[in-house]
């Protein structure tokens, strides 16, 4: 938060101080609004929960205390970790296939012409509709969950990598051949750095889709966290249900947030090095 005031170069010291003061005032205003509105939202939830009862809406206190302690004591930790392990296996396979394939699609025309209709066709198809078909050849175990995660996650890393490589492939490739770089050197020193921001965005979007895929796969065959969620909802153990939902969402946001941080870091470094050269 403090970084914003240092990035903008002040025209003079006095004007800079005034500018910083304005920014600080605006920031205080922003957080005041947020504190008031978000507190009101939580209060509304609490009031509604107390009126509706624990079988309809759990209170904040019961989510934070009963729900979270239930998560650790009732044996939900193992399925939770298990789910994320499956997710990472599927996502790692998806990235290992899609990023090289994306490079190929962005680099040369023929694979692009041949493969893109299928890629887009698979993207257009509602992934949930593939579940009954996937279950026939992947069973209901690890393979099923991994395949579903891959189906959900593959599109953005693939297409973004292809776009990133294609964007640099034109102009910068001409330039690097003018500078007598070998094809491999051009790829390593020009195409990869230029395409990295695109790839990172693709990975981030893919990860969000992968989490969705994990949940849907587990709700479909009833294993892991999906089974836990379904059972908790069925027996109206809502404080534990919401505690787990909060943990899943928090972890998903944390991971996508980390990727976003890397994107910003790289973008900033890119600007600095461009300014230096």
């Amino acid at each position: 938060m403090t970084a914003t005031s240092t990035v903008i170069a002040p025209p003079s010291r006095a004007a800079g101080a005034a500018h910083a003061a304005t920014l600080a005032r605006e920031r205080r205003r922003k957080w005041t609004y947020r504190a008031v509105f978000w507190a009101a939202l939580l209060l509304a939830w609490e009031v509604a929960a107390r009126r509706a009862g624990p079988r309809f809406l759990p209170t904040l206190e019961s989510i934070a205390v009963d729900g979270m302690s239930g998560f650790f004591t009732n044996g939900f930790v193992v399925p939770f970790l298990d789910s994320w392990l499956q997710l990472f296996i599927g996502f790692a396979i998806a990235l290992a296939v899609t990023i090289p394939l994306g490079v190929l699609l962005g680099w040369s025309r023929l694979p692009n012409v041949v493969l893109m209709p299928y890629v887009n066709g698979l993207f257009v198809t509602p992934t949930a509709a593939l579940l009954p078909l996937v279950i026939l050849f992947a069973g209901t175990d690890l393979t099923f969950r991994v395949v579903v995660v891959i189906l959900f996650a593959f599109y953005y890393p693939l297409v973004n990598t292809a776009t990133g490589v294609r964007q640099t492939a034109g102009g910068l490739r001409d330039l690097s051949s003018t500078l007598c770089m070998s094809k491999l050197a051009a790829f390593r020193k020009v195409v990869v750095p230029a395409a990295t921001p695109y790839i990172l965005v693709g990975v981030r979007l893919g990860l969000a889709a992968a989490v969705q895929g994990m949940v849907i796969a587990e709700l479909w065959v009833l294993t892991g966290t999906g089974e836990v969620l379904k059972n908790l909802a069925q027996f109206r153990r809502l404080s534990e249900f919401f505690a787990i939902v909060i943990l899943i969402v928090a972890l998903a946001l944390l991971l996508t947030g980390l990727l976003r941080l890397i994107e910003i870091r790289l973008a900033r470094r890119g600007m600095v090095s461009a300014g230096e050269s």
């Binding site: 609004y33 949940v215 709700l219 969620l229 939902v245 998903a252």
Partner: peptide, 23 residues
């Protein structure tokens, strides 16, 4: 200020986790 963080967080949330309780 108040809604935008909620919107972008919701957009990254797997909506499917709500399926068991929507009923």
């Amino acid at each position: 200020y108040v809604l935008e963080p909620i919107m972008s967080a919701s957009n990254a949330t797997p909506i499917a986790v709500l399926i068991p309780i929507i009923g």
